[in-house]
C-alpha cells in the first residue's frame, strides 16, 4: 500500500477494440503489492475485458501489462503459464466444473499442476472449504447440488487453493442476496488478508466495493477516470463518479437504453 513499493501489476496504455468499438482505450492502472483494488464501472464498460486481458484470456491490441516487473504481453506460452500460476480467479458465474465433485473442483489446480497426490490434495481442499465456511460433507457433492451462494464459496475456495499471490474477483456479489453478498465480502477480506494476497476486483456493487477495497478506480469509456482511497470516493470532485456511486439515472453518464 505504500507508494514506494513497486506495483504488483502495472498496466500501461492498454488498448482493446472489438471491431470498431473501443472497449479499453489507453488504460493505465497500478495495483500495489498486498493492496485490494476495486474497479467500478457500468455494465459493458469493459471491466471484464480488463481482467481477461490481464490473464491472457483475451489478447489486448496494444499496451503493456507487467506482473512483478515482468512483461506479460507477447510473452511465450510457457512464460505466460508460469506468470499465471501467481493468479487465482473467482469467475462471475463461479464456473465450477460440473463433471467433478466439489473437492476435486477446489483441488483442481493442485492436481492438474501435479503439485501433490490425490489424498493430500483432498485434505487441502477440505481445509480450504472450511476456510470459506463449508463443512467436509459438501466435498463429495456435485456442484449442481449447491445453491448460488455456496457455489460462490466453492469458487472462492478453488481460487485460493494454490495460495496465489494475486486474486482476481469478477463481480463476486452479483446475483446474491444482500446478506450472502456480505458473507462473500467478509470471506474475500479474510482470505486475501490471510494469505497476504493482492486483490483486484471488478464490480458495480458499491456496498461491496466500499467494504473490500483499499482503493477504488472507476472505469468509464475505456479509461480510468478516477482512482483513490476508498475514503475519498465521496469527495472525488468528478460528476461521473458521483452519479455512479449514488446510482442516478440523470447525469453526465448516459446509458444507451436503446441499442
Amino acid at each position: 500500500m505504500t507508494d514506494k513499493a513497486p506495483p504488483k501489476i502495472r498496466i500501461g496504455g492498454l488498448y482493446k477494440a472489438f471491431g470498431t468499438k473501443r472497449v479499453l482505450d489507453n488504460l493505465d492502472l497500478d495495483v500495489g503489492d498486498g493492496e485490494s483494488l476495486v474497479v467500478i464501472g457500468g455494465s459493458g464498460s469493459g471491466k471484464s475485458v480488463l481482467l481477461k486481458c490481464i490473464l491472457g484470456l483475451l489478447r489486448a491490441d496494444a499496451g503493456s501489462i507487467t506482473v512483478d516487473g515482468e512483461e506479460v504481453m507477447g510473452s511465450p506460452p510457457e512464460k505466460r503459464e508460469a506468470i499465471n500460476r501467481k493468479f487465482g480467479m473467482l469467475l462471475q458465474g463461479s464456473a465450477l466444473f460440473d463433471s467433478l465433485p466439489v473437492w476435486e473442483n477446489v483441488a483442481f489446480g493442485l492436481l492438474a499442476g501435479k503439485l501433490m497426490d490425490r489424498k493430500s490434495a483432498r485434505e487441502v481442499a477440505i481445509s480450504k472449504l472450511a476456510q470459506v465456511g463449508l463443512g467436509p460433507d459438501v466435498a463429495m457433492l456435485s456442484p449442481s447440488e449447491l445453491s448460488g451462494g455456496m457455489q460462490k464459496r466453492v469458487g472462492l475456495a478453488r481460487a485460493i487453493a494454490a495460495d496465489p499471490e494475486i486474486i482476481l474477483f469478477d463481480e463476486p456479489t452479483t446475483g446474491l442476496d444482500p446478506i450472502m453478498a456480505d458473507v462473500i465480502n467478509n470471506l474475500i477480506i479474510e482470505t486475501t488478508r490471510e494469505v497476504g494476497a493482492t486483490a483486484l476486483s471488478i464490480t458495480h456493487d458499491m456496498a461491496s466495493a466500499r467494504k473490500i477495497a483499499h482503493r477504488i478506480a472507476m472505469l468509464y469509456q475505456g479509461k480510468i477516470i478516477w482512482a483513490g482511497p476508498v475514503s475519498e470516493i465521496t469527495r472525488s470532485g468528478d460528476e461521473r463518479v458521483d452519479q455512479f456511486i449514488h446510482g442516478r439515472a440523470d447525469g453526465p453518464i448516459q446509458m444507451a437504453v436503446r441499442a
Binding site: 481477461k52 491472457g56 462471475q92 492438474a112
Partner: peptide, 19 residues
C-alpha cells in the same frame, strides 16, 4: 459438453487454474 463449458466460462476457469 465443451460448448457448454465455453458459454459457462468453465474453459476460462481452466486457464485461471494454469491448465
Amino acid at each position: 459438453e465443451i460448448g457448454t463449458m465455453r458459454v459457462t466460462e468453465q474453459l476460462d476457469a481452466l486457464t485461471t487454474l494454469s491448465t
